[in-house]
């Protein structure tokens, strides 16, 4: 007798836990042949608010970790993903990819995670400055994370798009709330399981599944989201975010990149959600300018 397959329940990821949506709603994305992929949580505005609370709670300790430690944790994500290559390839194929393309996508995703892991303790060196002010002060500028970042992931990609918008955000010390692709959500939930097993503190990345049309206004107008990255490809939604952002002068970043392209990775994706801080302190001139040392 053939063994009955255990089907996976795709849940959302909030504060390091895998709850179902509080709304009890779900939707069913279909594959190319019109077969249902799975029942997926149709996240509500309340789920988004809960996720923001979790992200805010995690922000303090994540942003204060040493950059080296963040780097190691990000690298660990790549290790965990590598270990689950086959699962991701199978999921991508299930969502319409070919085996070859799926393998390429997973490889690129793993390599991209390693790429951003490496930037954690380097980008501030590249982009900071000691500013030669004319007065007798020591003055320097360096980047700090913006805070809680909302991410609306690319709709046309299940894994590489998601990874490409999450990694630069957390590498820079932010925490985030992500809405996965509506029709290709499977890898997002499995990626949450990768994150959950890779030393990443709960709440740093929170992943919701559902519809952009339902949640885009909430992302824009939520008072405790500091920035939103929009990669969903819908210009009306981007405009709605930009208009909603005025409530707390949110930063809105719109990406139209094809993240499946191996060149679409650089540290400017990190600095897009950073704040530049400039610090001044007086210099006492005891020895005077003619000191020989």
């Amino acid at each position: 007798m053939e063994r009955l397959e255990i089907l996976k329940t795709y849940k959302i990821y909030i504060g390091g836990q895998f709850p179902r949506t509080e709304s009890g709603r779900y939707y069913t994305p279909f594959d190319k042949k019109g077969q249902p992929l799975a029942n997926v949580c149709l996240s509500s505005r309340k789920d988004l608010r809960n996720a923001v609370v979790a992200a805010r709670k995690a922000f303090g300790s994540w942003s204060e970790r040493s950059a080296f430690n963040r780097s190691q944790i990000c690298y660990r994500i790549a290790e965990m993903l590598e270990g689950r290559r086959d699962q991701f390839i199978a999921e991508l194929v299930k969502q319409g990819s070919t085996t070859t393309k799926a393998a390429q996508e997973v490889n690129l995703a793993i390599d991209r995670i390693v790429y951003y892991a490496g930037w954690c303790d380097k980008f501030t060196q590249v982009f900071s400055a000691v500013n030669p002010v004319a007065s007798s002060h020591f003055n320097f500028s360096t980047y700090e994370p913006t805070g809680v970042v909302g991410i609306l992931a690319p709709q046309d990609s299940s894994l590489i798009g998601l990874v490409s918008v999450i990694m630069p955000v957390i590498a820079g010390g932010n925490t985030c709330v992500v809405l996965a692709s509506e029709q290709l959500p499977l890898c997002a939930v499995t990626f949450a399981e990768v994150l959950n097993s890779s030393d990443l503190p709960g709440g740093v990345v929170n992943i919701l599944t559902g519809k952009e049309t339902e949640l885009v206004d909430q992302f824009g107008s939520h008072m405790d989201i500091n920035a939103v990255i929009y990669a969903g490809g819908n210009t009306d939604h981007a405009t709605a975010l930009e208009a909603g952002a005025v409530v707390n002068v949110k930063r809105i970043v719109v990406y139209t990149h094809n993240f499946a392209d191996a060149t679409q990775e650089n540290p400017y994706f990190i600095t897009d959600v950073q704040e530049l801080k400039t610090t001044w302190h007086p210099i006492e001139h005891v020895g005077g300018a003619t000191s020989s040392y």
Partner: peptide, 28 residues
């Protein structure tokens, strides 16, 4: 905050980026 003055205040210089976090705006 975008600018922090330690043991001084209200100092400005063309080489020194100025601008805020949160509702104080964005860009430097």
């Amino acid at each position: 905050a975008g600018v922090v003055w330690a043991n001084t205040y209200n100092k400005f210089d063309p080489t020194s980026p100025f601008g805020g976090y949160k509702e104080s705006g964005f860009g430097r």
